[in-house]
């Protein structure tokens, strides 16, 4: 179970994300993640599932460089994150788009300004930013809320602003933490299709969710976290009982 599992049956050596025997614990508590090993190939699309408290957010944090592993090796875009020098972090982070579980919007900035933030930080020109951001906001159905500030938005609207901010920079790696948690199924499907579009043009996507209906609608491989262990589950060719099928692990 804890052996290396090469996601997407590929022989490629350095995927976009590679974990080797990664463990995470908070303080002196138990290990939330134990001996996690996997590799995500560029252009792949995965769900990350597991019950609440299983460690989905913790795993994503390792991938978006908000946290270092307690032990083990984490590689992003072929770089060992534990030996990265400080000036090397921002360029790496700019290749990663994150939809945070709690949105993390800046309340005194408008939806437009919030979405524009990654571009602004990366030093893009104002004129380029505005048209681009307005277009994306209307795509996520917020053309009427361009100048609204987060406190006046509903949770679903905030979530869509957060999603727009995550994808505005066309990231190589998109990590979404429960991105459909606060929106209805129709909108959820629409958002997922946006992620699929990005995936088609090469973005590696990981979506943490506990929403089974999403997982069954979008027949994508599933990384399942339970009791600190990670297992890979592939959708069956037919839709009937695909979720119960577990791929045999290489070396397991």
């Amino acid at each position: 179970m804890r052996a290396n599992l090469a996601v997407q049956h590929s022989g490629e050596r350095n995927g976009v994300v590679r974990f080797e025997n990664v463990g995470v614990r908070y303080g002196s508590g138990p290990e939330i993640l134990r001996d996690i090993s996997f590799e995500l190939e560029g252009g792949s699309f995965h769900f990350l599932t597991g019950p609440s408290g299983a460690g989905k957010t913790s795993l994503l944090k390792l991938m978006y460089l908000a946290q270092r592993p307690t032990r083990g090796l984490v590689r992003l875009f072929g770089r060992d994150v534990t030996v990265l020098k400080r000036p090397e972090l921002p360029p790496l982070r700019r290749r990663i788009g994150v939809v945070f579980q709690d949105f993390r919007l800046i309340n005194h900035l408008t939806a437009l300004e919030n979405v524009a933030l990654p571009l602004r930080i990366a030093g893009a020109k104002k004129e380029q930013i505005e048209a681009h951001v307005t277009e994306l906001l209307s795509w996520v159905g917020l053309s009427g809320q361009v100048n609204a500030k987060p406190p006046t938005l509903s949770d679903g609207e905030k979530q869509r602003v957060a999603i727009a901010r995550a994808v505005i920079g066309r990231p190589s790696l998109l990590l979404a933490d429960e991105p459909t948690g606060n929106i209805d199924l129709d909108q959820g499907l629409r958002i997922l299709r946006l992620f699929e579009e990005l995936n088609k043009i090469g973005t590696t996507v990981v979506i943490a969710t506990h929403d089974r209906s999403l997982v069954s609608t979008f027949r994508r491989p599933e990384l399942r976290l339970q009791g600190g262990d990670l297992t890979l589950h592939r959708p069956a060719p037919t839709g009937v009982d695909r979720l119960r099928r577990v791929d045999p692990l290489p070396g397991a």
Binding site: Y64, L65, A66, R86, P87, L89, P90, P91, R93, R94, V98, R104, I106, L117, P118, I121, A122, R165, G169
Partner: peptide, 16 residues
């Protein structure tokens, strides 16, 4: 702290 962490995570340099 929280806003600064966000800025870092979306790629801001310390100088920013």
């Amino acid at each position: 702290r929280e806003t600064i962490e966000l800025l870092h995570l979306i790629g801001a340099r310390d100088a920013y």
